[in-house]
Design a protein around this nucleic acid. Structure first.
Lengths: 147, 147
DNA sequence: ATAATAAAAGTCAACAATAGTCAAAGCGGA
DNA sequence: TCCGCTTTGACTATTGTTGACTTTTATTAT
């Protein structure tokens, strides 16, 4: 028998694959209607399949004009979950790219991105690259802790 | 379906972006007419989107010749308006209080507050108080520039 | 000068349109 | 059978939209 959850997962993954920035937006009721299932089933799939653990971020808004935004986040895994795998240091360009990526995937706001860039720029005068990397990681954790 | 609130928000933000001094003035009924919606919908958007938390001040006048003025508030104003801004430096407690104040006035988010505190803490090891104050001011301007 | 009128913006409650939660039932494989 | 994943639906929470009514301000008529 067909497995709805898997079908929904595949549908969303295909939709995501068709996007250029690993971001896709859908409407829960609409998708439920299209796949002939209960709307809450979409929520179920999102909460079991599209988890941070698997490298996704799901954001949504209720009410009129509501939506669900799904973001695939490869960077998140690197930065948050695999501290052992990450490089010991980054070039300024690497930092710039990570920050841009984090912002484009809505893990940080433009204001936070600006703050972090300014921050990294300032400490450049005082710390070595390895130390800077350590500080950067702490900084992201600080952000998480205040969410 | 079309989402009026978002549309109105975008309209006002665009109008604001076209101004040179972060101030724009509009008429509620006129805008409602232009966007084909109820005038009260404009009020709704102003009260939910153009809040102090998001860095806006909305003033208005009723009656004949009435208007709505929307101002994007520079964050650093709060700091600059305080007596201590005359000083060249702050104690860590002063910084802490300013940050708490900024957050309680909803000029910065909890995440931003956390970032800034961490930031100030890190550079403490490297810069003197006067330099730290200078960096703090630049930091607020950076925040402002990314709003 | 005062009263009436017109021309704004504000308030609020009702209703509509979403998405989230959770308990209970269903189903399939070990 | 039993356990764990799936599926549903009733209920909740959030956000948007409208219109009737109120308040404020300016203008006009007397």
């Amino acid at each position: 028998m067909r497995n709805l959850a898997d079908e929904i997962e595949r549908f969303i993954l295909r939709k995501l694959a068709g996007e250029t920035n690993d971001i896709t937006i859908l409407q829960r009721n609409e998708l439920a209607d299209e796949l002939s299932c209960a709307p809450s089933q979409i929520s179920y799939v999102l909460s079991t399949r599209f988890t941070a653990e698997r490298g996704f971020i799901v954001q949504s808004r209720r009410g009129s004009g509501g939506f669900v935004r799904i973001v695939r986040v490869p960077v998140q895994k690197i930065v948050y979950n695999k501290p052992d795998n990450i490089m010991d240091y980054c070039s300024p360009e690497d930092f710039e790219n990570i920050i841009i990526k984090l912002n484009s995937e809505r893990m940080i706001t433009a204001r936070e991105a600006g703050l972090i860039k300014y921050f990294l720029d300032v400490i450049d005068d005082y710390v070595n690259p390895v130390e800077k990397m350590r500080i950067f990681r702490s900084l992201l954790i600080t952000l998480e802790n205040n969410s």
